[in-house]
Simulated scan of single mutants.
Amino acid sequence: MTFEQFLTILRARKWIVISVFFSVIITTLIVTLLLPKQYTAEATLALDVKAADPVTGQQIAGYMAPSYMATQVEMISSQNTALNVVDTLGLAQLPEAQAQFEEATNGKGDIRNWFAETLLKKINSKT
């Protein structure tokens, strides 16, 4: 098959090609608009903490203590940290967020705590 024959075939089938192209674009657009928005973030932390041994006074790496990483993970997934995130982002003041809170809880409870709990349910922190 020569290139000229290939172009002739495409010209003969141009309406099929155009209709398939636009149907794929329209279907993709509709699915994108109908699906709920979901955002995912991932962070990797490398902690290098140096501390002095209280008995000998020698420098030791703080992360060598078995409970150090567990404490850091606990701090990241704590209620206080989640409340700070809600306050920093100003989620409680957004009209859409207030409507979402009203719909989910019928206005019962504290909006800050509800957002913090919702945030903590979706956090996956591990050592």
Rank of each mutant, 00 (worst) to 15 (best):
E103Y: 07
I60T: 01
Q98K: 06
T118E: 08
Q98G: 05
K14E: 06
R13W: 04
I25W: 02
I60C: 05
L94T: 04
A65T: 02
Q98D: 00
K14V: 08
I25Q: 08
M69R: 13
L89D: 01
V85T: 13
A52S: 09
G107T: 07
Y68M: 09
G109L: 05
L119W: 08
E103W: 05
Y63V: 11
N113T: 09
D53H: 06
G109P: 08
V31S: 14
T56L: 09
S77G: 07
L45S: 12
V73T: 11
A12S: 07
G57A: 09
R11E: 07
T88W: 14
E96N: 04
F115K: 03
T118S: 12
N113D: 10
Q5P: 01
L83F: 04
Q98Y: 01
A92W: 05
L119D: 02
T118P: 00
D110L: 05
Y39Q: 05
V55Q: 14
S19R: 06
K121R: 12
L47G: 07
I111S: 04
F3Y: 15
K108V: 15
V73C: 04
L83T: 01
L33D: 04
I9R: 07
Q93A: 14
I9K: 06
A116S: 05
T44G: 12
T2W: 07
T127R: 15
Q100H: 09
D48V: 06
A97E: 08
T8K: 14
L47D: 04
N113M: 11
K121T: 01
L33E: 08
D53C: 04
A61M: 10
N80F: 15
T27N: 06
A92G: 04
L10C: 12
A46D: 15
W15N: 09
L7Q: 04
T127Q: 15
Q100G: 03
A41K: 12
I30K: 12
E74M: 13
S19L: 06
